[in-house]
Amino acid sequence: MKTWKRTSAITAAALVAAASLAACGDAPEEGAEKKNDYLPCILSDAGGFNDKSFNQLSYEGVKEAAAKLGSEYKEFESKNENDYAGALEGFVSAGCDTIVTVGFALAAATKESAKANPDIEYILIDDAADGGDDGKTFDGKADEANIKPILYDTAQAAFLAGYAAADYTKTKVVGTYGGQPFPTVTIFMDGFKQGVDYYNKEKGTKVKLVGWEGNDKGVFTGGFDANEKATNTAKQILDQNADVILPVGGPIYQGALTAIKDSGKDVALVGVDADFFETDPNTQAIVFTSILKNMKTSTYEAILAAGEDKLDMAPYVGTLENDGVGLAPFHNFESKISDTLVSELDTVKAGIIDGSIPVTSYLNQ
């Protein structure tokens, strides 16, 4: 049981954040200790805990782990980047034993807080906490010893999605666009491109990918909001005759929903992070598949280990082999895909796992 004592210079911003921290806790699971004083805390990025994506999945992992441990938990939902530092100071003041920060946007604030509070464990989702705040380098070790990075080699799962999209497209054009060119965004686009290229090589086809050339050359909305720019960016992709579209960047996929509806065309959507068919019923008629990051389980397991004083601070990297990433079912498209696609994807997946089909990303270069 952790019984650390801490002191912190609380700024005015931190006092505001501390006052607004939500203390939560479900009833402990049967057999769990009734009053475990271990306290996990979670801070979202500006997308919030209802983003139907990585914030929500990580939050659910913390919530379920706290219930399993028989402890309460605290949460703070950021409105913008100005909330990060104050919320983290609020967590320190509240006595949090483990602080989960969700998203690469929180890397700088997390590292600063971790350096100032070496007796607190930090779990940083989707950033290596290594080599600066752009996340573009990864040497297997966080800058601060008390940060555990949880990362996902989503290029592997996106490769499968790209292969599937190339097999499905009727126009022989598929497209993608992102929020901003961060590595945790472009890793999807890189994998998707590699999957399309591999399909073309194996099948002797010429399916075209629009919206991404690699090396940060592609189409981006400039942010992660479901706004007019997100819709117009999706329209830009559809105007190039794409009939499969992959938006990468949390809520920006909602712009694609609008663009697809306005186009009146038969366009398939590829989701990211979570299975959109399950998390957003509005997508069910058009979601082809989703590129999954098993964030809920990996966050759950990390908090459970931390609550039992067993957290290994080495970075976790989700892959196809350890089920940290994957491809969602085709749901309503099962009757529309080719008879051989599923078996082909199984073969490709096995090749990625055994290394005979290489997939490159910033995590394995």
Rank of each mutant, 00 (worst) to 15 (best):
Asp216Tyr: 11
Leu151Trp: 03
Pro247Ile: 05
Val267Glu: 00
Lys203Ala: 14
Ile353Asp: 11
Ser93Ile: 10
Gln56Asp: 08
Gln56Asn: 04
Lys63His: 14
Val173Met: 02
Glu30Cys: 09
Ala158Phe: 00
Ser343Glu: 03
Gly135Val: 09
Asn117Phe: 04
Thr233Gln: 08
Leu106Thr: 12
Pro183Lys: 10
Glu213Phe: 12
Thr154His: 08
Tyr38Trp: 01
Met313Ile: 09
Ala274Met: 07
Ser58Val: 09
Pro329Thr: 09
Asp127Arg: 03
Asn364Trp: 13
Glu30Ser: 01
Ala268Arg: 00
Ala19Glu: 09
Gln180Ile: 14
Asp119Phe: 03
Ile42His: 02
Thr258Arg: 12
Val174Met: 07
Leu106Trp: 02
Asn200Lys: 05
Pro247Tyr: 02
Leu246Trp: 06
Gln194Cys: 15
Leu39Asn: 02
Glu77Ser: 14
Asp339Asn: 13
Ala128Met: 15
Gly249Glu: 00
Glu308Lys: 14
Glu33Leu: 08
Thr289Pro: 06
Ser44Asn: 14
Thr171Val: 05
Ile99Thr: 09
Ala107Arg: 02
Gly131Ala: 14
Lys141Gly: 12
Trp4Asp: 11
Tyr362Ala: 02
Ala305Cys: 05
Thr101Ala: 05
Lys170Cys: 10
Lys235Glu: 11
Val348Met: 05
Glu213Ser: 11
Glu301Cys: 13
Lys52Asp: 12
Leu341Tyr: 10
Gly191Asp: 07
Pro183Thr: 09
Leu106Gln: 04
Gly95Thr: 09
Lys206Gln: 09
Ala23Thr: 13
Val272Ser: 00
Ser298Trp: 13
Leu39Met: 15
Pro358Glu: 05
